[in-house]
Amino acid sequence: MTTDFYTCSTQLISSSRRKARKTALDYIVKYAVALLLLCVVLLPVAFMLFQSVMSYPESSGLEMHLFPHSFQPSNYKIILDYLSQLGNTLLVVAINAFFIPLTACITAFPFARAKFIGKKVAFAIILATVMVPASVLQIPTYTMYATVGLTGKLASLWIQSFFGGGALNIFLVIQFMRTLPKELDEAALIDGASLFRIFAVIIMPLVFNVFVYICINTVIAQWMDFQGPLMYLATGSEKSYTLALKFYVDYTNSTYLSDHYNEMMAMVVCMSLPPVALFLVFQQRMIGGIKIGGLKD
């Protein structure tokens, strides 16, 4: 018996040591693979970062090289020129980032959770609006805004967020809602809750990570977007530009900035920081698990 016990315990100890060794090797291999992939995937980012600290002759020079030979962090002073546009961008982005996911969730709920008359048709119409290329809708949409007098004003950038936040977002929320088990609302229905109650109390908290995901995506897309603002805000005053628009305008007017790629990259790096920070903060929320509260395993 004792021999058995001894053999068992040595076996246990050596197997755990083996496991420890195996896990260490595992870790090293996985980190190495990740590092290798990162080297490929991060090449553009590295290029951007290195260009942003190069001195002017080097960044506009004719030889391409990755690692800078000069170091000029004073390029970053360029952001001081853009502080006045920051407020505009924050306003537009905040309104969009809150209302787009909200209306997307509101719209997606009936499709995911209920059967009603005209469901197929409504879904088809919603998805159909995304399939038309934006170029041809440009003139009629611009005309509509011009007739109402919204061109040149910031309101043109956030007014669409109240009206169903984008067909693809709706579709995404539908897919997420449908992964939730149906027992949740069936229990509530038996208790006599109305659809509104089910939506507000049960479903919304559970799709919170999708809400945050759409929110972050909207922030990122709107932060860097200049094409929409260029079309609608061009006739307005410079005070109402957004950050990305002012940056693009400076980059294309033959001003100092269009020549100095290094300072331009410094500005781009600074512009990328808020979305990165947001992503870091909310990463756990987006990817972290949902709590299937109320359901017994």
Binding site: I139, Y142, A146, T147, L230, T235, Y248, V249
Partner: peptide, 19 residues
């Protein structure tokens, strides 16, 4: 803005011709 100056003007013209 210089970028899309022509497009801005042509868009405005289209809007004017329509409304």
């Amino acid at each position: 803005p210089s970028a899309g100056y022509k497009d801005t003007l042509t868009n405005m013209n289209s809007a004017c011709s329509l409304n």
